Computed example of a mutant assay.
Amino acid sequence: MTENLLANDGGALVAQIRAWAKELGFAQLGVSDIDLAEHETYLQRWLAAGYQGQMQWMGDHGSKRSRPEELVPGTCRVLTLRMDYLSDGAEPMAVLEDPHKAYIARYTLGRDYHKLVRKRLAQLAKRIEEHLGHGRYRAFVDSAPVLERALAENAGLGWIAKNTMLINQDAGSWFFLGEIYTDLPLPVDPPQDSKHCGSCQACLDICPTNAFVGPFELDARRCISYLTIEHKGSIDPELRPLMGNRIFGCDDCQLVCPWNKFAQPTKEQDFRPRHGLDDSDLLTLFNWDEETWAARTEGSALRRIGYERWLRNLAIALGNAPTSAAIIEALQRRAAYPSELVQEHVSWALERHGAAIS
């Protein structure tokens, strides 16, 4: 019955699903098949080079990441959806250029996107199921072995660019992706069959830590997003001065991308900046006690790194800031914090300012 319905009116069904997705706040939906052979080869080469660093989960689960039918048996199509997240707030470059400010990646200034997008995907899946009366659906938001950008490229939502992010020619790259795996043989959308980066390499040139091995290839071990979020231990002293005031993530390669002039502001109120984190002083954040940190990051993706790494990252940024008595005093107060990781980075920061641990 499903095959007959889709054969006769599959296009109309996809159009209806797109309308429901728009009602739920998604900006775009594409349908792809599950052939990721080309991307699987790239992933295996990337992992073999060790570019994943401590993200060992990138190599876990065997081939389930690149073969959707192995992750969810019966899957033959993937719905990939885009939700814009760029909100009003302090101008990003102005924050980056002020060494007294703390730069936090724009995607994490509001509510944790995992929760919001996953809920909307589940609502969409339920609506499809209720409409058809059957079918299998499994929703994912950066929470399982899924090649999100590869599926999005195959679904025609954009191209994987030189900075390894997905770029949409009408919306830039300031958006989240989510997927619904299904056994419905829906008609697929034309894949993105060309990349539109041209000779531009602004993203490669701007990277503070030279994390790009070349176009389309990122060594995560040097990426500030990886270092401030995924990396759990001591950060290489050679990289610390290059991190500037970036304390959670890095948007440099997006900020300079010409295609982001087409980025659309989000309509989601939950993605609006909270607690002034789009324009906060380093010292203010460094002086938060753990209770304040927990309260101010509740429901935020900032929770991922924990309070210890929060202090580690801020200590580096303060070490890179212009010397002042206030900075030295704040660092000295943290010098005996009961964490070797924090102590190490505070000591480094004090040395940068020519100050001693009091």
Score class of each variant (00 low, 15 high):
L5A: 10
G198F: 12
E238K: 13
G198H: 08
M165P: 00
D279V: 04
P187Y: 09
R136V: 12
N154W: 09
S199N: 03
H100Q: 11
T164K: 11
L6H: 02
V78R: 05
A211M: 07
H134G: 06
L71W: 09
I327D: 01
N4F: 05
L318F: 06
R221G: 09
L341D: 09
P92I: 06
G53V: 04
L81E: 01
M83L: 09
E291W: 06
G25W: 02
S324C: 10
Q192L: 08
S358Y: 13
R118A: 13
R334L: 15
M165C: 15
L151C: 14
E291I: 08
G135T: 05
L132D: 08
G133I: 12
R67T: 11
K232P: 02
L13Q: 04
L79R: 03
E130A: 15
W20T: 14
V95W: 00
A294V: 04
A171I: 02
Q201L: 12
Q264K: 13
P241T: 03
S173N: 01
R138D: 11
F26S: 06
A48E: 15
G133H: 12
L47F: 11
L318Y: 02
L36K: 03
H61S: 04
L318N: 08
A125P: 01
A122P: 00
V256C: 05
P215W: 05
P190M: 13
E70A: 11
H39P: 01
S300M: 15
R272V: 02
W46N: 02
A301I: 03
T2E: 13
L218G: 06
E91Q: 12
A356W: 12
R309H: 14
G156P: 13
G30N: 10
L6P: 01
Y42D: 11
D9I: 03
E268Y: 00
I128R: 01
I235N: 02
P241E: 06
R352Y: 02
Q264W: 00
A335K: 13
W46M: 05
E329L: 11
D270V: 09
T297G: 06
L5R: 13
W288F: 13
P237F: 12
I316N: 02
E23T: 15
M93H: 07
S32D: 12
P145G: 08
T2P: 07
K64Q: 14
G50S: 05
A139R: 04
A105T: 10
I327W: 02
L79T: 04
A220M: 10
P185W: 10
E148Y: 07
S66M: 07
G30W: 04
L79E: 03
A7F: 08
C207Y: 01
Y181H: 10
S234Q: 11
F140M: 10
L184G: 01
H196M: 14
E290A: 14
A7L: 11
Y51S: 05
R136T: 12
T292V: 15
D98R: 11
T292F: 06
R222G: 05
T41K: 15
Y42A: 11
D88T: 05
N163K: 12
Y337R: 06
